[in-house]
């Protein structure tokens, strides 16, 4: 494998691991917002922003965490046949089908960028009384999707490398 590709795959892995490790703690932010919401509602006046803010955090959580979750191999597959194939067949099939996954992520990103452009151009605000600007969360979403896209591309190269007998990540010769 060319050095550039090896570097790319390793770099993407490290980056997503770092981003994901930060994103995974957003669960406490969600928890905090909602606990604050129930306390303020019970004892004081309810806040106008809690539910929407929690939703923003939820979206950031799973999109920014996406790439890392792929590294953790958290995404289920239907393995009726897949499970019984040899590792080589699996890699071969993955090399092809991951391209389709990449297509999906690309379309996701395409729509995200378009929607973000709109938000920036018109200063889009959420249609709520709190009316936060939508551009920041949309930008975060695009970053998350982009990182997922990079991770999928890295997975493609990783499989391709293994098919040709090298594990890019470990540098091991598995031919």
């Amino acid at each position: 494998m060319p050095n550039a590709i090896t570097a790319f795959v390793r770099y993407v892995n490290v980056m997503n691991r770092h981003v994901g490790t930060i994103a995974m703690y957003l669960i406490f932010v969600m928890m905090g917002i909602l606990l604050y919401s129930s306390i303020s509602k019970t004892f004081f006046t309810p806040s106008i922003w809690t539910l929407e803010m929690a939703q923003f955090v939820m979206v950031a959580y799973y999109l920014l965490g996406g790439g890392y979750s792929m590294q953790l191999d958290a995404h289920v597959r239907m393995d009726l046949f897949y499970g019984s194939w040899s590792p080589k067949t699996r890699m071969l099939m993955d090399c092809f089908t991951v391209l389709l996954l990449i297509f999906y992520l690309f379309m996701l990103l395409y729509g995200g960028i378009s929607s973000t452009e709109y938000a920036l151009k018109y200063g889009e605000q959420s249609y709520s009384a709190w009316a936060p600007q939508m551009a920041p969360i949309k930008i975060i979403m695009c970053i998350g999707i982009f990182l997922m896209l990079l991770q999928a591309i890295a997975a493609f190269f990783h499989d391709l490398g293994r098919l040709r007998g090298v594990d890019i990540l470990t540098g091991e010769d598995i031919g």
């Binding site: 995404h75 597959r77 699996r90 991951v98």
Partner: peptide
């Protein structure tokens, strides 16, 4: 789905 790609991707 039968190709074994991740469900969300399929």
């Amino acid at each position: 789905l039968l190709t074994g790609q991740r469900v969300f991707g399929a």
